[in-house]
């Protein structure tokens, strides 16, 4: 058995401590909140400290941080599937009680069980979910290519129509700010495509002039994107990052506990 320091330390922190905490929690209800916050503190602080303390026990090959990364890839997988339990609960309830729109729930559940079932079959049989050794696709891949792909692409493609309609109905030069927004939008839309060449296409003598103007417009668009847009984006990034970083500190220190269903903190 491999008893490198990193593994053993992680097992103590994230297995033994929780086991003790859970056992005690059955008798001391106050520990049901404090225990998880205490353990979470270590999980949050390890990736941060490892940048400051480049020592073997923390960030070395056999240290805690690399192994913790590996662990949390696995936990993430479980967490991702968490919501599906909810969907199945809601769906079966709707169907059992014949609530309004239940046939659509049945369609949803059918899609979920067939696709998910083929995925599980891929794992159990060892076939996987992409291609077989002979180059042919698995049944899961067939569903992914012919159901999942066109559905996702088309549902999002609908937005193109709604954006066009919004451009017509809501994009108005009502005041200074809206006018700036509109002008920037139009300039960028015109400058990112060969619009002037397209308009000049029926008039060959105008084409060289259109190509020249189009180049200029393209340069202006790049300036807008890099300088005013880049500056605004930098400002947004700095502001949002400081907010997220302070939120991270609140979570790690256990001040923010809403995510554990413990009320919103102070």
């Amino acid at each position: 058995m491999n008893f490198e320091f990193g593994r053993v330390a992680l097992v103590v922190l994230f297995a033994l401590l929780p086991i003790v905490g859970i056992a005690l929690g059955f008798f001391v209800p106050a520990l049901r909140a404090r225990g998880p916050l205490f353990v979470a503190f270590f999980a949050g602080i390890i990736p941060i400290l490892s940048l400051y303390i480049p020592r073997q026990f923390l960030s070395g090959e056999t240290g805690m941080r690399p192994r913790l990364d590996q662990w949390l890839i696995i936990v993430y997988g479980f967490a991702l599937l968490l919501g599906i339990v909810n969907v199945i609960q809601n769906g079966t309830r709707k169907i059992a009680r014949r609530e309004k729109g239940w046939p659509y729930s049945a369609v949803l559940m059918t899609g979920l069980f067939i696709t998910g079932g083929l995925g599980i079959w891929g794992a159990v049989s060892g076939q996987g979910i992409t291609t077989l050794p002979d180059g042919s696709g698995t049944p899961f891949k067939w569903i992914a290519d012919h159901f999942f792909l066109p559905l996702q692409a088309t549902i999002f493609a609908l937005l193109a129509f709604f954006m066009a309609s919004a451009a017509f109905r809501a994009f108005r030069a009502r005041n200074t700010e809206a006018t700036i927004l509109l002008a920037a939008g139009i300039l960028v839309m015109a400058g990112r495509v060969p619009l002037l060449e397209f308009l000049a296409a029926p008039f060959p003598p105008l084409q060289p002039a259109a190509a020249g103007a189009s180049q200029g417009l393209g340069k202006l668009t790049e300036w807008i994107m890099q300088t005013p847009n880049g500056a605004a984006q930098s400002g947004i990034i700095i502001g949002a990052a400081l907010g997220a970083a302070s939120m991270a500190i609140r979570v790690i220190l256990g001040i923010e506990r809403g995510y554990l269903g413990l009320g919103g903190g102070e």
Partner: peptide, 28 residues
Amino acid sequence: RFTESMFAGVSLGYYVGTTLNQTLVPNL
């Protein structure tokens, strides 16, 4: 509505298939 529900169902099933085959099996 049929298509929308199918999309939701197939997407969730896709989650199950990829997470199981690409993360949980090889990494755990």
